Computed example of a mutant assay.
Amino acid sequence: MTLRPVETWLTDMDGVLVHEEVPIPGATEFIDALKESGLQFLVLTNNSIYTPRDLRARLLGSGIDVPETAIWTSALATAQFLADQRPHGTAYVVGEAGLTTALHDVGYVMTDRDPDYVVLGETRTYSFEAITRAIRLVDAGARFIATNPDPSGPSQQGMLPATGAVAALITAATGRTPYYVGKPNPLMMRSALNRLDAHSESTVMVGDRMDTDIVSGLEAGLRTVLVTTGSTRPEDVERFPYRPTRVVDSIADLVAMVGSPARGEHGIDAGHDSGEGHGEG
């Protein structure tokens, strides 16, 4: 089968471009190469706390200049999903500005009076009162949506409970499981492709987690590249029943590939045997 040349790049943020707010070597050069190539790209994140404008400022503070329009969050994907499912609906939201702004922008009204949905996102200030209200609304029949299933997240002080952990609390109380929009749901990838009017067969997904980035990219029909600067260690790759198209040490190894042919010895598909190809730039 002849593979189409790469025309679009999707890349995860945490563990690929940055650790917290510390840039990973090669990240700035990779983004600059994408902008210079003229290829379409999006930076993806399951974190729903921040708006794209916020994230652009945070990345810029790390020396990585990503346009606001090139950032796609689980909050944006969730808002788009709800707008498609039930246009101009209502929602009770447990989350931060990234989520509430995205929902407002698609015409949703925030309310705690018989909402169509309870939407749970990331927040650093979960309140017992808000979670109790969410439980009662879900129990009364509101549809339960969560931006992503991540059970925990990092901070400078250590692990933090994330959306998946709080969703589990609500599920335990109500017996209702949320529909998760973010990775590993391939819907997150497809919504990103739709935003760019891009095709899966000419798109590459770069991520640091086999169980979210790589599997969602694979299920959406994308070629995938695992970088080993984040969650999945090189020795763990072979434990999974699926494989990325390629494994590299870090995002720095992909700078030279941007704009190069998608096949041949310098392409993404060179060294398709990812277990043996680790470390080949």
Results as ranks from 00 to 15, higher is better:
D32Q: 12
T132A: 10
V66L: 02
L160R: 15
F240T: 01
V94E: 07
P151A: 11
A192E: 08
R53Q: 14
S37I: 02
S200K: 12
R53A: 15
T147F: 09
I145W: 02
Q157V: 11
S191E: 06
L196S: 07
R263W: 14
N47Y: 06
A168K: 05
I268V: 15
A102T: 03
V215Y: 04
M210P: 06
L187G: 02
D208I: 00
G95R: 01
M189K: 05
P154M: 06
V66N: 01
A256C: 04
R58I: 15
A172Y: 11
A130Q: 14
V16K: 00
R133I: 04
A167F: 02
F81S: 09
D249I: 07
E21R: 13
R113T: 14
G267W: 07
P67L: 13
D12E: 04
Q85S: 14
G217T: 08
V258T: 09
Y108D: 07
A83C: 06
A142L: 07
M205D: 00
Y126W: 15
V93N: 04
R56K: 15
T78R: 00
G121F: 03
V6P: 04
I135G: 04
D197H: 14
S231R: 10
P244T: 06
P178F: 11
T73R: 09
L10Q: 00
T28A: 15
M188V: 09
D105N: 14
Y92W: 12
D269M: 05
Y108C: 07
G107Q: 13
G279S: 00
D105W: 01
I268P: 02
